[in-house]
């Protein structure tokens, strides 16, 4: 039974992706929890991947600006659309 439940780190990392999407089967969940309880590396991987997932949503181009010329262009286009 234990042998069946023991998954590799490679499989565990694959399952954490599924876990993120709520798509683990019951059996997969059991196997993943068992592996994570014994493997600090995969636990670390999961924690860090989760953090990356959270922060990715917030990524914005802080160092790039929309040029004023482009804004003026857009303003014109919108004005023309409204008046037609």
């Amino acid at each position: 039974m234990m042998k069946y439940l023991m998954i590799s780190c490679k499989d565990a990392t694959m399952l954490t992706a599924k876990k993120e999407e709520g798509r683990l089967t019951f059996g997969e969940g059991v196997k993943l929890r068992l592996h994570s309880s014994m493997c600090s590396l995969c636990k670390k991987f999961e924690k860090q991947s989760h953090q990356i997932a959270l922060e990715s949503k917030e990524v914005v181009a802080t160092d790039s600006e929309l040029p004023e010329a482009a804004k003026k262009r857009m303003q014109e286009i919108l004005k023309n659309y409204s008046s037609n």
């Binding site: 990524v59 914005v60 181009a61 790039s64 600006e65 929309l66 804004k71 857009m74 919108l78």
Partner: peptide
């Protein structure tokens, strides 16, 4: 308020889209 859209939102929409 469409007249204000470019002024208020064009920059942040752009900064969201670019990455």
């Amino acid at each position: 308020n469409p007249e204000k859209w470019v002024e208020l939102y064009s920059s942040m929409l752009f900064k969201h889209a670019l990455p």
